[in-house]
């Protein structure tokens, strides 16, 4: 925590670098890759709040993304409701879905793999539902019109989406930064570490877990609007893809669960590895194997993620200096 404050200067510098970066990159490809990294980091961060901090692993995080995407897109296609306001309803929709799923599963005491499975089931249920009802466009999907402009949250240049994703990611980091130093964050961590003890010490564990999944839902909802306005097409397999659920937990686990920058680091590393593998390996499918191998190595050797591995080293040098201080104080 104090480390974080000490490094604040460098962080602001890093943020500034990301802000001016598009002026130095002319390649549309790199801008797109970076946009995708921010987007995944943002989604990873939403997973991180419930999974990394509160210790409740969800396997269906995509349900909030898909629901948010449908909320703002249906409002747009049916009522002409501008996405710049629609995104807020998407956020509300995601939070509300979080409330329902959270209440139903936490109320009945689901934990661990049972909770993971129930979230997976909810996401699948929504996918099937979106496929069979009419107002989502069913299996045909929804086509959004291309009409760049801020009110549509569409941009002519990919740089516009770069900033959109960057803002989302900054917001997500701000939320988690607040968590790290707030009572609510401490209560979530207490629940993760030992739920009975947390309850005994006056923490309303049910309420806290529901709040956490609602924050995750709200964040996912906004991501849905982003995606829909960027790619202008939505159908149930995209909106509720298991792949995205896996990706948001993967970047967080690789980067470091329960850390501020874990999801960003994880998203950056995994996307970079993926792009490099695709770029240098021509044999189809082989790049995926390389990607998978690197994933196995990271998860196998760094159980606390990349940030965790780095922190451990720092902690070691930290504690030794502390020992010296206290022993000096004693003598």
């Amino acid at each position: 925590m104090t480390n974080f404050r000490n490094h604040l200067y460098f962080l602001l510098l890093g943020a500034l670098a990301l802000i001016v970066l598009p002026y130095f990159i002319s390649s549309r490809f790199y801008i797109d890759v970076l946009t995708l990294i921010f987007f995944t980091a943002y989604l990873g961060q939403s997973w991180n709040i419930l999974g990394g901090y509160a210790g409740q692993f969800s396997f269906g995080g995509v349900m909030f993304f898909g629901t948010g995407a449908y909320v703002s897109s249906i409002l747009l296609t049916t009522f002409g409701f501008p996405p710049i306001f629609g995104i807020f309803l998407a956020i509300l929709g995601g939070a509300f879905l979080g409330l329902i799923v959270g209440y139903m599963s936490f109320r009945s005491g689901l934990k661990g793999s049972y909770f993971a499975l129930i979230t997976l089931a909810f996401a699948e249920l929504l996918r099937v539902l979106a496929n069979s009802v009419e107002f989502t466009g069913g299996g045909v999907g929804l086509f959004l019109t291309y009409a760049p402009g801020l009110s549509n949250l569409q941009f002519e240049s990919p740089v516009g989406f770069y900033y959109f994703a960057l803002i989302l990611m900054f917001i997500s980091i701000a939320i988690v930064y607040w968590l790290e130093s707030s009572r609510f964050g401490a209560q979530l961590v207490a629940i993760r570490e030992n739920e009975d003890a947390a309850e005994a010490l006056g923490i309303n564990t049910l309420k806290c877990k529901i709040y956490a999944i609602m924050i995750m839902g709200a964040m996912g909802g906004a991501a849905g609007t982003f995606y829909a306005q960027k790619y202008l097409y939505l159908d149930p397999p995209i909106a509720y893809s298991i792949h995205l659920s896996v990706e948001m937990l993967l970047v967080t686990i690789v980067g470091g669960m329960g850390t501020i920058f874990g999801p960003l680091v994880g998203a950056f590393v995994l996307h970079t590895v993926n792009e490099i593998a695709r770029h240098f390996i021509d044999t189809p499918g082989l790049s995926l194997i390389v990607y998978g191998l690197i994933l196995i190595i990271i998860i196998g050797y760094l159980p606390n993620g990349l940030i965790g591995a780095f922190k451990k080293k720092e902690k070691k040098s930290d504690s030794t200096s502390l020992d010296k201080k206290t022993s000096r104080g004693d003598s």
């Binding site: 009572r183 961590v189 207490a190 993760r192 947390a198």
Partner: peptide, 27 residues
Amino acid sequence: FQITQPFAGLTTLENIMVGAYSNTSET
């Protein structure tokens, strides 16, 4: 608890703070 239930991943200070937070929201 008879079988101690520490928040293992946290420091002693952070453990005690969880208790203290029951009366204040100020860190």
